[in-house]
């Protein structure tokens, strides 16, 4: 369910960002489906390969997209079971994305271009720096809720009382920033830049064309929707009564009880509605941020990314205070 909804969102997501950016800069802008029309054109186009490249260059985009699809399969939808959730699934989630990045970096290095080497090197550094922030965040949530599968974390997260608000706020903020870094967006990288020396993501795909380029762009769109879904998991309200009933059922049925964990009809409609609203707000936020925020100097980027880890640590210490006060 979450997977399908995320794919639906991914169709509108890049177009919406583009539209918001156009409006913010005083233009009318293209239609919301324009990026996907471009992708469809790319899918049908022929490809140009550099003679320097090898098979790595050709398999990299396919693996990149596959990792994102598989990572999305792990995500739950609020109040509903994820397809493949298990304990510690967010570790797999993070490492799958890392695998995609690894192949993506290798694809860039395969061209032998110094521009792409530059981009690859920056991507490797930034993703390395962003890794701890994600793990601190989920470690904190695991500490708060006592669970390690994303579905259980999110389900019990919403019932941890008022504290959930502040932790949720920090979590959402962090996830937005991580999403921006992972997608090479504004404060770190500018997709609209036109100087190769200062690019990160765009310079890495300089030599990709046709079908492969389309795969990468689909991947980027899906990645946005994926982070949107992750954020929505914090914000979409879950039917508490239903959840309690379900957990009782869970106790009786054991593991299989998870499958019946679906709220009542109206609740689901409401949740889906809220979900789409959140995704739309997320997209507009990105559009606005990109329009009104300046890109950081490249040398400042590591500092900025490490800041996220320290914010995550603040959340961790907050949770420490909360949980140990409760014990006292």
């Amino acid at each position: 369910m979450g997977f399908l909804l995320a794919i639906v969102t991914a169709v509108f997501f890049p177009g919406l960002i583009l539209r918001i950016k156009s409006i913010a800069s005083g233009r009318k802008g293209p239609g919301i489906l324009q990026p996907w029309k471009n992708i469809l054109v790319l899918l049908r186009k022929g490809s140009v390969f550099s003679t320097t490249t090898s098979y790595i260059f050709q398999i990299a985009p396919a693996i990149y997209l596959s990792t994102i699809i598989c990572a999305m399969l792990l995500l739950p939808f609020p109040g509903m079971p994820s397809l493949f959730g298990f304990n510690g699934d967010f570790v797999l989630f993070a490492y799958l994305l890392a695998l995609g990045k690894f192949m993506f970096i290798l694809g860039a290095l395969d061209t032998g271009s110094s521009f792409e080497g530059m981009g690859a090197n920056r991507e490797a550094l930034y993703s390395m720096l962003a890794e701890p922030a994600f793990f601190i965040l989920f470690g904190t949530l695991a500490l708060l809720t006592g669970h390690t599968s994303m579905q259980q974390i999110f389900e019990s997260f919403q019932f941890t009382g008022h504290n959930a608000f502040i932790i949720g706020f920090i979590a959402v903020y962090l996830l937005i920033q991580i999403a921006m870094i992972e997608n090479s967006r504004m404060p770190v990288d500018d997709p609209k830049t036109h100087l190769e020396l200062t690019m990160i993501h765009e310079v890495m795909i300089l030599d990709h064309s046709g079908f492969d380029l389309a795969l990468i762009q689909i991947g980027t769109a899906l990645k946005f929707a994926m982070y949107g879904l992750l954020i929505a998991n914090f914000l979409v309200p879950v039917d508490g009564g239903q959840l309690i009933a379900n957990s009782e059922q869970l106790l009786m049925n054991g593991e299989k009880g998870m499958l019946h964990n679906v709220g009542s009809g109206w609740m689901v409609v409401m949740q889906v509605g809220v979900y789409f609203m959140i995704q739309a707000v997320f997209a507009s936020l990105i559009g606005l941020m990109e329009s009104f925020r300046a890109r950081k100097k490249l040398v400042r980027n590591p500092q900025f990314i490490v800041t996220l880890s320290s914010i995550a640590l603040v959340a961790f210490i907050l949770v420490l205070l909360i949980t140990f006060k409760m014990v006292d």
């Binding site: 320097t52 090898s54 790595i56 993070a94 490492y95 890392a98 990045k101 690894f102 970096i105 290798l106 290095l109 395969d110 061209t111 032998g112 080497g117 690859a120 490797a124 550094l125 993703s127 390395m128 720096l129 962003a130 890794e131 701890p132 994600f134 793990f135 601190i136």
Partner: peptide, 23 residues
């Protein structure tokens, strides 16, 4: 451990990418 993971990615993208890829 998360940092080690990220650093290993950095190190081995270098080891493989620069030894075997490019020209």
């Amino acid at each position: 451990l998360a940092l080690i993971g990220g650093l290993a990615l950095f190190g081995f993208s270098k080891a493989f990418g620069l030894t075997f890829l490019g020209s």
